[in-house]
Design a protein around this nucleic acid. Structure first.
Lengths: 325, 325
DNA sequence: GTGAAAGCGCTAACAG
DNA sequence: CTGTTAGCGCTTTCAC
């Protein structure tokens, strides 16, 4: 790898001059500039980012911590982030936390050791003690937080929407699948759905489930033995919804005639189900993009209008609800 | 952030000594060692990886380039890689290439500028000119390549398996969905399936499709207008398979009675379909893990037994094929 | 056993 | 307009 010295020698100038023309800082005579450019070309010189980072105490790296890239909701977000950052010349250094505080801490530490300039993280860490001493900008993604910038979608609206739609579509005995209560966003939509339903005369059941494929299976098995007559499901995410849908179909129930189900997220495979899953869409990609945008702004010391950016959510009606006209 | 100087001062020793005890290199009196450890603890000292990287000309970063993390096949692999690397103390710096040479090049360059010690990449770049001048170890993932270490699964076996199974299950008019021919792995399984079928008297159709959700839709619409009597589908991946399955169901075809379909990959949502998708499984997570393991070995200058690691593939029978006993 | 000092590749004063 | 130099935080000879 050619260094700046090589370029300087090749161009017959000093390293300072090379640095100047490369960074467009300070003056440089047109001729020297050209000579430098030529040398850079010739030697295929690429500045060593590590050296830069060491001196400037800031890199072109941003850290991303997600619970689990294997959960189909996150890749979409990650892609949004990556696309935006890539355009801005930043690179992503990435880790899966499994919602585990220790791993989060570990990643955060090593990211910091690598001079990341910013952090995007999806976490439930409630006492944000981790972030309080943080010297770099951070933005929370898909999670609510206190004083930190955050981007998430309107959980209340989502929960309400799901409940109202099932109501409007004539469900009489609704089962709400509640996700892990530690995940604030998931809990909020649950609360919101409940609050809509409790003022009505429909029967309401609550069942818990994890967000994973495995957890969903367990829940799906359980729901129909516990509530065989339930005719409406509000699931905490699409995986759970899809699993319940499958189970219902396997039992010979007609969907949406006998039972309606609404998912959450609008993960891409939901459109591939048969019947395709009706669900509450979170604009995951845009959320990722926005988080990246906000982070860059903070890195550039630009003022933020709002600390929290909340995206509206929308109902995607497909085949698991009884469309009304 | 505390630096090594701060620690040295706190412990009343020189930076050299601190460095020695931290790295376990060279001697250190038990007492000084303890003093240093105490100072490290007290100051919460974490070595600056950037400075280390600059001096040693190698970091704890490995680059990962994948076509698109949004494609459900890749997160599984990525997770395998990340889990392994994380345990070994390495961090991942990541980019989506969209199979685009220019982006690959760009990522590779910036990764190199950041002193990555290794590279894992899923690419079709045929003339591996990019890699020839590479000074760091690299391993190809899910892609065949020449002289470079690579891990992938047995495409020939996969294609053959799919064809044989449809044959054994009595399909008479099989449509093979061929993915992009530029993707060597995908093309190979296609070839293999064809070669099994051409020696038989079943009718065979070929149809092209992209690997994406969008491309799959287009193909799924097309297949039944072109070949309304096809009774067996060998798809190039699970997304295409699931989309065709859905389309078939929507047309009132019975699955697997009227038409059987076999996917490829065994992506997680396939188990959620109804009927659940029969498919050829690639051990994505393990492939990721293995790629990481090989990379680490190369980084540590250990000798590799084999350049290419090929994983066997297996048929996961679910509801879209007619099980025989 | 331990410290002084050089140097990894770069940028930013500061002189000239 | 351009060059010299110090120094970012660390590791590693090389003396002592």
């Amino acid at each position: 790898m050619a260094t700046i010295r090589d370029v300087a020698k090749e161009a017959g100038v000093s390293v300072a001059t090379v640095s100047r023309v490369i960074n467009g800082s300070g003056y440089a005579h047109e001729d020297t500039r050209k000579a430098v450019i030529a040398a850079v070309e010739k030697l295929q010189y690429k500045p060593n980012e590590v050296a830069r980072s060491l001196y400037k105490r800031k890199s072109k790296l941003v850290g991303l911590i997600l619970p689990d890239i294997t959960n189909p909701f996150f890749p979409e977000m990650a892609r949004g982030i990556e696309d935006y950052l890539q355009r801005e010349g930043y690179r992503l250094i990435f880790g899966n936390s499994d919602e585990n505080r220790k791993k989060e801490r570990e990643y955060l530490d090593t990211f910091l050791q690598n001079n990341v300039v910013g952090l995007i993280i999806s976490t439930n860490e409630q006492d944000h003690t981790i972030f309080d001493n943080l010297t770099i900008p951070a933005v929370l993604l898909d999670r609510t937080a206190g004083h930190l910038p955050a981007v998430y979608s309107d959980q209340q609206q989502g929960g309400r929407l799901a409940a109202e739609i099932l109501l409007a579509r004539g469900a009489k005995e609704i089962t709400i699948i509640r996700g892990p209560v530690e995940i604030k966003t998931v809990y909020e939509r649950y609360l919101s759905a409940v609050s809509v339903l409790e003022d009505t005369d429909v029967k309401v059941h609550i069942l818990d489930s994890a967000l994973s494929y495995q957890g969903a299976r367990k829940c799906a098995k359980e729901v129909f033995v516990k509530y065989p007559d339930t005719d409406g499901i509000i699931a905490c995410n699409d995986i759970v919804a899809a699993t319940i849908l499958q189970e219902a179909l396997a039992m010979g129930k007609r969907v949406p005639e006998d039972i309606q189900v609404i998912g959450y997220d609008n993960v891409s495979f939901t459109a591939l189900l048969h019947p395709a899953l009706s669900t509450i869409q979170q604009p995951a990609y845009e959320m990722g993009t926005k988080a990246a945008e906000i982070l860059i702004k903070k890195i550039n010391q630009e003022k933020l209008e709002e600390i929290h950016t909340v995206f509206p959510v929308s109902f995607i009606e497909r085949g698991t609800t009884r469309e009304v006209e």
